[in-house]
């Protein structure tokens, strides 16, 4: 559905969705904070926190930013960005930790 040509009825339907998403985001926030009080093993804490955050982010991007029905030009741009983002996030694991720790003695 093109966001440029929407009938009044469609916009109203959208606004109802926005409030539902708002509710979902609040619930997810509560969940992620609650998990943090449990002090899970670090690995699982990270995984859970990232899963919840990604879910929230997807909801915002898909519904508030209308990415669920966007044009190809924008998908292409974001697709390219996503790939390059992955390269960036790989950097920490490219550092030779065993050697780096040996360089300087504290």
């Amino acid at each position: 559905m093109a966001s440029e040509h929407m009938t009044l009825e469609e916009v109203k339907k959208h606004t109802r969705t926005y409030w539902v998403i708002f509710g979902a985001l609040l619930v997810l926030t509560a969940i992620t904070v609650a998990i943090s009080y449990v002090h899970l093993p670090f690995f699982w804490a990270v995984v859970l926190a990232l899963v919840v955050a990604s879910t929230k982010a997807s909801l915002v991007a898909l519904y508030f930013m209308h990415l669920i029905s966007e044009k190809t030009a924008i998908y292409l741009t974001l697709g390219l960005t996503a790939v390059l983002f992955v390269f960036l996030i790989v950097i920490p694991w490219m550092i030779p930790w065993a050697e780096v720790r040996g360089w300087f003695v504290s």
């Binding site: 992620t32 943090s36 926190a49 990232l50 508030f64």
Partner: peptide, 17 residues
């Protein structure tokens, strides 16, 4: 929304982990 999105990641990574 993007600013919100950054916060959504920033909050668990900085505060909750």
């Amino acid at each position: 929304h993007f600013v919100d999105l950054v916060w959504i990641f920033l909050f668990p990574i900085l505060y909750l982990l």
